[in-house]
Design a protein around this nucleic acid. Structure first.
Lengths: 222, 222
DNA sequence: ATACGGTGAGTAAGCACTCACTTACAAGTA
DNA sequence: TACTTGTAAGTGAGTGCTTACTCACCGTAT
């Protein structure tokens, strides 16, 4: 009687099912790795933060490397962030059908900026991975960003055929636009956390970036 | 006879003056830190790569932290990279005087992209520093990038007064433009080293980015 | 009664850092 | 020229601590 059944689903202490514990360790490791990088995080730290012994960590993952690999795979393949900024984004889809160019860029930008803000840890981890040279992160970037280039690049190409956009290499335009978005998020996350250089809500950033890119590629007197 | 006098100025082995050795260790540490980050680099690695014993490293620097601090300070304060993209850049200066808007953005962009390409190690180190949260790197960014915002932002404001540019917050335009440049370099350095997504020379990138930003802020029918 | 969640107490290797000690060499002296 | 000598460059062999990882062993729910 008075067992600790009620702590079963909780984070931290108490007996947990194998699967649940595994996921919890993964999440804990994610938080730490994203803050301090791979070699800056110890397995002891992870165990302590997860509320288990270090041995438990190695029951679920054969090595620190394997844990890291499982983490990246989980975060880049199976979880929500793989969702592209146009999925479940009626704004973008509706705008595309209506050939509302501003709407396409605006809703795309807003979704991307909001997503970055919600998943700072993921952004940090991807950056760490890229710097540390884990190929799995590179592969994610290749495929994920590749899709984005195809999507946005395709739209630009279509609008060029309509004579609505001027003649530019679409992929350069995509790079310019993605640059605005990612760089803006990076500033907010990394270098200008207090936003002393520029402090604007995502809506305003999205609106301005969309305007700039649109005027940048539209044929004159649009 | 047959002493190793001739190796004195060399890298690696042979007796060296204190100052020279100190600088050499600093440079060696820079190469390693920029590749593997702070906690991913050991003092043993540094000593080995510099061709001296580990004890020598600690004769010149009291601790690994101090070595890292000296490194960042040297690279951000005393060396060439602190140079802003408009210094010793006749293209930008001449274009500004002539109010050649395209020239200003083009030469600025080209200089920045070339600089990034020449100093990949520095770019990597700054990124690592930002992720790892070394305040000295943050201070560098604050002041260095702050200057850039003032410079480019000032030019945009002036051209708005001339009624040549439309009404936009200049700092947002700067962020958009810097985003294109830094993001493009970041792709080349980090994620798309083989340039499968986009493979263009810096001149073309600079031209296209300048064109986009210019059309993005110019008043219609310019 | 046994399978499974969980641990304490290891181990060997690696870490930043120290110290007693050995060179190499330029300047001074005869 | 040869010999001394002070100083600064340079090191091998450690120090104590931390690291990733292991293993024999519990406790409890079914």
């Amino acid at each position: 009687m008075d067992t600790n059944v009620f702590t079963l689903g909780h984070d931290g202490h108490g007996r947990m099912s194998g699967d649940k514990r595994r996921e919890q360790i993964l999440q804990t490791a994610f938080d730490l790795f994203s803050h301090r990088g791979f070699s800056g995080t110890t397995t002891k730290d992870i165990a302590k933060a997860a509320g288990v012994s270090e041995a438990m960590v190695f029951k679920h993952f054969a090595s620190k490397d394997e844990l890291y690999g499982a983490l990246i795979e989980a975060k880049t393949c199976h979880e929500g962030l793989k969702k592209y900024p146009w999925e479940e984004n009626e704004g973008v889809i509706a705008a595309m059908e209506a050939k509302d160019d501003f709407g396409v860029f605006y809703h795309f930008a807003l979704k991307a900026l909001n997503k970055h803000q919600e998943d700072i840890a993921f952004m940090r981890m991807i950056f760490y991975s890229a710097l540390e040279g884990h190929e799995i992160a590179e592969r994610f970037f290749q495929s994920f960003v590749g899709e984005i280039y195809n999507f946005l690049g395709g739209y630009i190409k279509a609008r060029q055929k309509d004579k609505a956009f001027r003649k530019v290499e679409p992929r350069i335009v995509v790079r310019a636009f993605m640059g605005m978005l990612i760089h803006h998020s990076l500033n907010n996350i990394l270098w200008d956390k207090k936003r002393t250089l520029l402090d604007i809500p995502n809506e305003e950033a999205a609106k301005n970036f969309a305007e700039i890119i649109l005027r940048g590629v539209a044929v004159q007197e649009g």
